[in-house]
Design a binder for these strands. Structure first.
Lengths: 364, 364
DNA sequence: TTTAGCACTCTTCCTTCCTGAGTGCTAAAG
DNA sequence: CTTTAGCACTCAGGAAGGAAGAGTGCTAAA
């Protein structure tokens, strides 16, 4: 028990050990069954006997790359094993033409409202990978109002259009029990634009509202009606929403045959806020995909689960993240490839301006 | 085997039989365990022996109101039994003040965009009942465009605001690689409003667009850009969206300990389109809640599942539905009460105009 | 360092057996 | 005719006991 072998992760593994580790991981990913020395004879094509492989397996186990469910079972990768696999052994998966085509088509989304697109992207990823997926827009810095417009509809209703400095536009139809005149509305618009533009959510204080209301004179409580809508918009943007999709895919995988486990994970995934907060979004800076294996996750509920993340640019300096959740036995290569392809697609989608009128657009 | 007893559902049950049936249903709803004659001695307070109850149980079973999982188990209600219970025996559940308060608060929703409200309502119902829930807006009749407005933002971007005759307002920010002048935009607006107002989705033909584009002259492809957005809006409204929430609650119930079963139901629920189509929405006319027990459901996937529906008014003649899905062993009384309360709340929410400016609003 | 051989360990699966709950039937009592 | 007590019978579910088989670790030889 007290052996003093170096279990240091700095110790380089021999090529043969790596080959074996890789074979174990890939076989286990495919079959979800522990892998034994005999099976490895074929999988990793080494010209050695099963006994030799057994020795190597014992070493790998001792160094923490593999685990044994029980004495007479084969080996399965430990989180540390997966980590090494992901860092060094995994072959970058190239998507087939089929797959890229499929994704590209799906990315031609209708209704380009930010939140709908993000939601759709999440669903798409889930369907693509057969794992639960989530998508969220990075919560922006403080957002301010850029402008108000009021559009008269008829005697007693008008549309408020609010635009933020992040170029998000929201509108609302407001119906009133009293009549309104066009000049009144004009006046109101000017007043709103002079008093509230450039303000963040926190700066829209009740006092400010009261002052403005006073200036409005005859327009009673209209100011507060419009401004409170603007506040809802700002609030909505600061608490960036999380969209989850395909949670039922959890049940596809044998590691969640135990209903208790499945339930725990599923209900965690539906607490969208908690999920968003537990993601190490800042750490995503350099590379645009990140893989979190089992205990590397912050959230307790994800400790025996892996998460693959990819970030995309929404434009205007904002970032968003899409991700996939699954058992640690996950096809990292495939998932990472798909995710990153979708993320790139989203970035492009958000980056582009409308098609130039007149000239037909060029496909790249 | 060949007994000729009338199994006719027209046969009235004796009071005692009803009392027993009710006790069976309610006990089974609570415990999910088959109910035996001895247990019933206490549950239904009848001054008879267990042997008498056994006789009655045998009758009820023969008449199809109860079932026996196996010879030596107690009885559980059949769908027919639940139906009778729901129709005649169930006591209308009154919500506690606590509960109504909770619901009322949750109904004070922010961001009153139609789809967000509906989504939120679904989530709320799911949380309230601990069953998966869904919500949808009844797909409207043909929707047409009521008006267009274009708001200039700066040299090369503007906001399109489209309003439909169902008073839905949608907007989109359009950025162009070329410059635009205010007069150009004015012209465009008039053109759009004269050419496309009052048209349904089908009537927005490519020819119509071409004619208008020609009239626009110097404004190149702007017309088609704006109109295709309008088309997306109309399309979005016709394919009314379905929102599901809380599917993980399925796993809470012992009838879905079998992962296979749970998975089937869950993946059916996530096919939101199929779900919406299988609901007998027209049949919901008269009463505003409807209960579908097991095989009464149209969809094969819901045959051993119950669905409780409640409809609400969106205004403008449109209706929406919220519903809950669960095992046939469902607390119908409670669920129906909650659902109908929420539906009423939604109707009120949509019906109301904005608060009258000046006067403080009255609570009812 | 590699390999063959072999004893050993455990899980998994099957069979068997037992227990207890709940029934249906019969015959007596109201 | 209805109700009740008594009793034999059925059947699911759990415990116990093997038997089979996979895979290991160790030893000793190559």
């Amino acid at each position: 028990m007290l052996n003093q072998k170096r279990e240091d992760s700095a110790v380089e593994l021999s090529e043969r050990k790596k080959k074996i580790l890789r074979a174990v991981v890939e076989s286990y990913i495919r079959t979800a069954e522990p892998v034994g020395s005999k099976a490895l004879l074929e999988l990793a094509d080494l010209n050695v006997s099963s006994a030799t492989i057994r020795n190597e397996l014992a070493d790998l186990t001792e160094q923490g790359y593999l685990e044994q469910p029980h004495t007479s079972a084969g080996r399965i990768p430990s989180p540390k094993g997966y980590r090494l696999y992901v860092n060094e052994l995994m072959q970058e998966q190239r998507l087939s033409l089929e797959e890229t085509k499929q994704i590209n088509e799906a990315l031609h989304l209708k209704m380009r409202e930010l939140d709908k697109v993000i939601d759709q992207a999440g669903r798409m990823v889930s369907q693509l990978t057969n794992y639960p997926a989530f998508a969220l827009a990075g919560n922006a810095r403080k957002v301010t109002i850029r402008r108000f417009d009021l559009i008269m509809v008829d005697g007693n209703s008008f549309i408020v259009v609010v635009m933020t400095d992040s170029s998000v536009v929201r509108n609302k139809l407001i119906r009133l029990p009293v009549d309104l005149s066009e000049p009144q509305l004009q006046l109101l618009t000017t007043l709103l634009n002079t008093s509230f533009v450039g303000k963040t959510l926190d700066e829209l204080t009740p006092e400010l509202m009261r002052v403005a209301e006073h200036a409005a004179g005859s327009s009673y409580g209209l100011i507060s009606l419009v401004v409170s809508f603007a506040m809802e918009v700002l609030e909505g943007l600061e608490h960036s929403a999380v969209y989850t999709a395909g949670t039922s895919h959890i049940l596809d995988h044998p590691e969640y045959q135990d209903v208790g486990k499945a339930q725990k994970l599923m209900s965690y995934l539906s607490e969208e806020q908690a999920l968003a907060e537990s993601l190490p979004l800042p750490a995503l800076g350099d590379d645009n995909t990140k893989i979190l294996i089992g205990p590397e996750n912050v959230a307790e509920e994800l400790k025996d689960t892996s998460v693959v993340l990819a970030s995309y640019d929404i434009g205007d300096g904002m970032k968003g993240v899409i991700g996939v959740v699954g058992p640690t036995r996950m096809d990292y290569a495939k998932v990472a490839a798909k995710l990153s392809y979708v993320a790139d697609g989203l970035s492009k989608l958000f980056g582009q301006t409308e098609l130039p009128p007149g000239k037909p657009e060029k496909e790249e």
